[in-house]
């Protein structure tokens, strides 16, 4: 029996959206290796549902929801199952590009947030979703989105002022 031949419209869609998916994944997990794994898993799950998913009106939102749920599921697993960014790798990058200090501080501060606050900030500020859209994608109320946003930003401010503990 011949190997499965991927559906052409799936390949076309992912070729156009892979970079975007990877970037959102990175903002969720702060580690490019894990971002690749998250994005790969999201693509796989999308294809598993492709016969139905291809008819969805907001396919980007559908895929983004898969990605966020995959990320949240990973954070719910016992923590050893999660891939952790390499401290040394971060130091190497910083050494090559000293002006990255600020970005690395933001990254570490994001990593310290509870997963749902973290995902809320990424959806709201990077994906530019409204409170209503974010609530739909996270499967929670608009009030929860607002409170997670407010608390997340407040925590970031505190973390960045005080430094992220190692």
């Amino acid at each position: 029996m011949a190997p499965h031949i991927p559906d052409g419209d799936f390949v076309e869609y992912m070729a156009a959206h892979a970079l975007w998916l990877r970037r959102v994944a990175y903002l969720l997990c702060q580690d490019w290796d894990q971002a690749d794994d998250l994005a790969q898993t999201a693509m796989t799950k999308l294809y598993a549902h492709w016969p139905r998913a291809r008819k969805v009106e907001n396919l980007d939102g559908y895929l983004r929801t898969i990605l966020v749920n995959t990320f949240l599921s990973e954070t719910r697993r016992p923590w050893w199952k999660r891939i952790v960014s390499s401290e040394q790798a971060a130091e190497d990058v910083a050494a090559e590009m000293p002006d990255l200090d600020a970005s690395l501080d933001v990254r570490d501060a994001l990593a310290a947030l509870p997963p749902r606050q973290h995902a809320t900030l990424v959806l709201r500020f990077y994906c530019d979703l409204t409170v209503e859209q974010t609530a739909v994608e996270l499967g929670c109320s608009q009030g929860t989105v607002k409170s997670n946003t407010s608390r997340g930003l407040a925590s970031l401010r505190v973390l960045l002022e005080g430094g992220v503990s190692a």
Binding site: P3, H4, P6, D7, F10, V11, M14, A15, A18, L19, L21, R22, R23, Y26, W32, D33, D36, A39, Q40, M43, T44, K45, L46, Y47, A48, W50, V93, M97, L100, S103
Partner: peptide, 17 residues
Amino acid sequence: DTAPPSRMDITRAAQDG
């Protein structure tokens, strides 16, 4: 600031999916 080359593989995602 920091993006390295991607390891994503669309064909593999389709096979696994």
